[in-house]
Amino acid sequence: MGDDGQVLFTDDPTLSAVARYWAARRRGQPMPDRTDIDPLHLPPSVWPNLLLTEPVAGSSAARYRLVGTAHVERYTFDFTGRTTAEIMQGSYRDYMERIYATTLQEGVPVYSESVFRWDASGYAFTRRLMLPLRHGGPSAALVFSAQVWPSELPVHPRSITDLSGTGGFRDGFFIALDPDTFLPRDTRDL
């Protein structure tokens, strides 16, 4: 939560649009079902920033089922069908898997921010909103999310595998949000 008690992402049109859509598709339930979500019902400007992931049984990893083109451009390859264990390393992998686990286990939206040491010339900042989805049952089974990069890249795109393996992940935090208000429930710093 910001110092003024506001929802953390209201300043970002992509994150706000995804939050409004998810909330409307809940229809009085704790979270929408996967069948209630169709990314084509969101503004086309949002599509490149979307992700859909599912947990990998018996693992802390998540598998990417939908990867928007902004991610492909930013990280240099399409990681649809790949897992966090296959494309991420070190503390960044741990960080992302904790966010996915929190979203799934608590069944609530999660907001996160992180900073990468992109190269010798500077840092890149990113923001995410991760939203739980049911898939035929009562509990969270998938994570529908949007990720944005408010700042321009200091240089050319880099592979997420390279970025996470070279100590590029500088720091990050995430906050579980109340599903009705999108206000923070708690903060977890790394």
Rank of each mutant, 00 (worst) to 15 (best):
A120H: 15
P157G: 10
A120W: 14
G28K: 00
G136I: 00
S164H: 03
T103A: 09
G107I: 07
D178M: 01
Q105N: 14
E106K: 03
V155H: 11
F173W: 12
G122S: 04
G122W: 07
V56D: 04
A85F: 05
D186K: 04
V155F: 10
T35A: 15
D36H: 08
L131E: 05
E73D: 11
A70K: 08
Y111Q: 03
Y123C: 09
R65I: 08
P44M: 08
A124E: 08
R117Y: 11
Y111M: 00
A124G: 10
E73Y: 10
E73F: 12
T102M: 14
I160T: 05
H71Y: 14
G165F: 03
G165Y: 00
P184S: 10
T166A: 08
R26D: 08
T126K: 11
D180P: 01
R93E: 06
L50T: 11
D78Q: 03
G90P: 01
L183S: 01
R63V: 12
S114K: 13
F174P: 05
R98P: 04
L50E: 06
M88N: 08
D119K: 02
S121M: 01
A85E: 08
D38M: 00
R26P: 07
E73P: 01
V67Y: 00
I87Y: 02
S114C: 15
L50K: 09
R25I: 14
M31H: 03
V18Q: 01
L51T: 13
R65H: 13
R93Q: 13
L42E: 07
P184C: 03
I175T: 13
D119V: 02
R82N: 05
D94C: 07
T80A: 13
S151Y: 04
L190C: 00
P132E: 02
P13F: 10
D11Q: 13
V7K: 03
P184K: 01
S139T: 14
D162P: 00
Y95F: 15
A124V: 12
V115H: 10
L177P: 04
P132L: 05
A17V: 10
R74E: 06
T10A: 15
F182M: 14
W149K: 07
D36P: 06
Q89D: 11
L50F: 04
P132K: 00
L40A: 15
F173S: 12
P13V: 11
S139K: 12
P132T: 02
H135D: 15
G68T: 01
S60A: 13
T166P: 01
E106D: 12
W47V: 06
A23N: 10
T80Y: 00
P157C: 10
R98Q: 15
M88P: 03
A24I: 02
M96N: 05
F144T: 01
Q147C: 08
Q147V: 09
D38E: 08
D94R: 15
F174A: 08
S60M: 11
A61L: 04
F77S: 15
Y75T: 02
P44A: 06
A17M: 12
R34E: 06
M88A: 12
S114E: 15
V46N: 01
Q105R: 14
